[in-house]
Simulated scan of single mutants.
Amino acid sequence: MSEMKLTYFNARGRAELTRLLFAQAGKKYVDCRLTGDEFKAMKDSTLKGQLPILEVDGQQICESMAIARHVARETGLYGSSNCEATACDMVIESCNEVINAIIGKMFRAKTEEEKAAADEKIHSAVGGLNKVLVKVKGGKFLLGEKASIGDAAVFSILEYCKVANIEPNAECTAVREVEKNFAEQECIANYLKSRPETQF
């Protein structure tokens, strides 16, 4: 398998899903964490002037979800059939709806009324994710007994929720189950203990 280098800031943010996938797969990679000044110095050498980027044998890949999907395919974490990959995609896109709602709260909601409306939108998106999981989850994990990019995406999105001070509603049991089962794996538990502590 090709050597991979993931470059981002010293934060979870848009790179953490990919880091979780590397941890899940037990795949060694270069985890390059830049300061703001270091990024400014190399910004023009990136495809779109933004992070994260993944370098594979000298070839750059940009866009966080394209990176995550690439790593998942390379490491066998995208299912073993087109139907399983589609199940992962449904969960990933549902997670993206949650992220967009959280971004709306953190960067656009100013008044208390706007923040309350944003919280409601986040809860609605998490509820939608839970409905998808109830319908498609095939066992302990999304695809049965082996974790996939779908499980990692759910875990990652709940970390976003914590940053936004959002606790999923009690009825979102499928979301909570996926989070718990994913985090309790030895490979993930070890990664979570060893990763740098960051605010986001």
Rank of each mutant, 00 (worst) to 15 (best):
K115M: 12
I99W: 09
D119E: 07
N96E: 14
A101K: 05
N100F: 07
G104R: 04
I103H: 15
E120P: 00
R108Y: 15
A116R: 01
C95L: 06
A101E: 00
V98E: 13
S94R: 15
A101L: 07
A116Y: 01
S94K: 15
A116V: 05
K115W: 00
A116E: 15
M106S: 06
I99L: 15
E93N: 10
E114M: 07
I103N: 09
K115T: 04
N100H: 09
M90P: 04
A118E: 15
E114G: 03
I103D: 08
A116Q: 12
E112P: 01
I92C: 09
S94E: 09
A101C: 05
E120S: 00
E112K: 12
K121V: 06
S94P: 11
K115A: 06
D119Q: 08
G104S: 07
I92E: 07
E93L: 14
E97P: 05
T111D: 01
M106L: 14
A116T: 08
K110Q: 13
M90H: 13
N100T: 07
K110S: 10
N100L: 12
M90N: 12
F107W: 09
C95N: 04
I92D: 04
E114S: 08
E114Q: 10
N96P: 03
C95Y: 02
I103G: 06
E113C: 01
E112Q: 06
I102T: 06
T111H: 02
F107T: 12
E114C: 02
A118I: 07
A117N: 11
A109S: 10
I92H: 11
E93T: 13
D119K: 03
E120T: 01
F107G: 06
A117F: 00
V91Y: 05
V91G: 01
K115I: 08
K115G: 05
V98M: 06
N100C: 11
N96V: 14
R108C: 11
I103Y: 09
I99D: 05
C95D: 03
M90Y: 13
T111N: 03
M106Q: 10
E97V: 00
V98N: 04
N100P: 01
E93D: 09
E114K: 12
K121W: 00
R108G: 10
E112N: 10
C95E: 09
I99P: 11
K115R: 14
E97T: 02
E114A: 05
V98R: 01
I92L: 06
K121L: 15
E113G: 12
I102G: 01
I103C: 11
D119C: 09
E113Y: 02
A101Q: 05
E112F: 15
V91K: 08
E93W: 13
V98C: 05
N100M: 11
A101M: 02
E113P: 05
A116G: 02
E93C: 14
D89W: 05
